[in-house]
Design a binder for these strands. Sequence first.
DNA 1: TTTATTAGTTGCATGATGCAACTAAGTGAC
DNA 2: GTCACTTAGTTGCATCATGCAACTAATAAA
Lengths: 225, 225
Amino acid sequence: MSSKIICSVDVVLLTLSNSSLKVALLERDHDPFRGVLALPGGFIHPDEDQDTEAAAARMLRDKAGIQSPYLEQLGTFSGRGRDPRGWSLSVSYYALVPGAVVQASERPGIVLHPADDVDWLPFDHAQIVRAALTRVRDKSSYSSLPVYLCGDTFTLPELQTVYEILLGEPINKVSFRRKMDELEILEPIPGAQKAGKAHRPAQLYRLRKQFRRKLSLTDRGINPG
Amino acid sequence: MSSKIICSVDVVLLTLSNSSLKVALLERDHDPFRGVLALPGGFIHPDEDQDTEAAAARMLRDKAGIQSPYLEQLGTFSGRGRDPRGWSLSVSYYALVPGAVVQASERPGIVLHPADDVDWLPFDHAQIVRAALTRVRDKSSYSSLPVYLCGDTFTLPELQTVYEILLGEPINKVSFRRKMDELEILEPIPGAQKAGKAHRPAQLYRLRKQFRRKLSLTDRGINPG
DNA sequence: TTTATTAGTTGCATGATGCAACTAAGTGAC
DNA sequence: GTCACTTAGTTGCATCATGCAACTAATAAA
């Protein structure tokens, strides 16, 4: 009576590389679409996964080697058309990860594809990516989301360009700094500056403790605290 | 290999009655929790439902007699603890419906419970209701959502009190009218006014065509166009 | 020491938001 | 009919947020 359904979890892993937003894709190692690039994902294992978010974290850990990024539920996509095997359901998440973490993940299979250039992907993964981009851009305009694309420490000019890449338009310097100040999520690192080529060095900042996430790279002690 | 999962759909049907926000509850007619008030919901039927949204619409139609309200996906809740039968997954939606439509739905089983007073419900339905309230209130502060709690026609003072009930605080009259003007979703109904007790009558408005939804009551021709 | 370059701040113009006080249009009391 | 009362809707102004231009600050290279 209680019809059971094939349920999977898919993750839109977003990162910055070469100053543009990329989505992480992996070659599928099972049919359907074996060998084709697709979002990291897989079936939910009720005996193993506490809930769908834990399942999404497992996908990232096993398939992309990434520990605990910013992870948020995007939505659930369902229907007969999305999988050639029949009616299915995918609970989708998106993750934000600093470029350095993805580069250091030592999983050679990961392909970073320009996030805005996704035209077709297996299942309805292209639609899921587009939904993730819309969500991230919407939230970026009024929240602190983009900081999770930066490393542990960053300067305000660096963070500003991250916002500008996401929003696709230049931001006023003063307004940006005022907003960051109001959000009260950053703290300057005492005495730490980042020197550039030949100009005044910029103050380094980090997320205040309650907003921090420990990413795999940090866990391995590669980045300074 | 592809472990299948028990999937249900639950709907948080919100409406206004006696100037306060209510959530629609129904007595369950199956175990577990037979006879206990819970959200309208049920198993997804892949052979019948195009997708989860169609399933949610079916729940509303069959269990609450309501045709096509504002319906939006809220999120997916999952895990071992939420259902005594074991690991399960619920794709949850919320619907906004004018009070008159619910009252006319002719399903005597519907109980309208104060939305903010929900302390315990079967499964994790209380948590789902709280998530819906948070979402609706967040969106209400910057969007046109609350109009879907009004009937087909309404005056601006009426709409303003709907916003005030949702947000729980008074709104400045001028600011409110400016905002409605900017949103460009309403149009005055030419020559139509609503007279009150002993004062100037208020202009009647309706949603502009592209934003309208045909609700069951409208379909039956009870409300004027 | 001068120049170039980026970091960060200050002051002001412009626009959005909120309040008080106004006018408008109806009913009922007398 | 006129006046009082009530709610609808508008106007003008004060206050706050946002954005721009121009400033100072700090470094390295010439």
